[in-house]
């Protein structure tokens, strides 16, 4: 019930972002549950967009569709964004907790779901000539979500717009850094593992 109430709030929030995000945090209008539902729906939207978009607009080879990759292409950037956001704003006097950040970011992504999900249906009944509408709405959803993300970050941390813009750039760089360190970590683990394995093999062959 709580989750449903949170989801219904999305339709208010995307049209009134400033009030919406303020109440989201301070009036507890949203909750983690509905945030995860939105991210989950976004994952579903991405898969459906690949799989069910009309043939005319679907330029992806369906033989190479990988649902796991599609889901990860939503969840991984989202998680990275939240972690990098929290790490940076904690140092830069941000007022949002990690919970606030997750809820805000998830709600900001709502237009991607709300616009793209019906668009998948529409893409099955329009022709190439009407494609301009299709591409317009796709761009609209991205721009809308991006704007909401900015407003959300500024409201949740009580930042000015300039500070928000600066922070956003820093967060994106931070995401890159996390990926780099992650890859480094795995590559080192691999080295260590192969070392241990080699020692084990050496001993087992000699005994």
């Amino acid at each position: 019930m709580e989750v449903l109430r949170g989801l219904r709030y999305v339709f208010y929030l995307i049209f009134h972002p400033f009030n919406g995000f303020w109440d989201l945090k301070h009036e507890k209008k949203g909750n983690l549950g509905s945030a995860f539902v939105i991210v989950g729906l976004l994952g579903v939207t991405f898969i459906l967009r690949r799989q069910a978009t009309g043939f005319i607009f679907n330029t992806v080879n369906l033989l190479e569709l990988n649902i796991f990759v599609e889901i990860m292409s939503v969840i991984l950037p989202f998680a990275l964004w939240c972690v990098a956001n929290w790490s940076l704003t904690t140092l830069l006097d941000g007022e949002g907790s990690i919970k606030d950040i997750i809820i805000t970011s998830a709600y900001a992504l709502a237009p991607l779901v709300i616009i793209n999900l019906p668009l998948i249906l529409v893409s099955n009944v329009i022709t190439l000539d009407e494609g301009a509408f299709y591409y317009f709405f796709i761009s609209l959803s991205v721009v809308w979500a991006g704007a909401l993300m900015l407003v959300g970050t500024s409201v949740v941390h009580q930042y000015s717009m300039t500070k928000t813009l600066f922070c956003t750039v820093a967060i994106v760089i931070g995401m890159g850094l996390i990926i780099f360190i992650g890859l480094l970590f795995f590559s080192l683990i691999q080295q260590v593992w192969s070392f241990i394995y080699t020692v084990y093999k050496e001993i087992s062959l000699r005994l």
């Binding site: 043939f55 005319i56 330029t59 009944v125 022709t127 190439l128 000539d129």
Partner: peptide, 18 residues
């Protein structure tokens, strides 16, 4: 046209079919 991956002609046929 779908088997031939020809999207512009598919669109033409689809328009008439619709």
């Amino acid at each position: 046209f779908k088997l031939g991956n020809k999207r512009d002609y598919y669109s033409k046929a689809f328009k008439l079919y619709r």
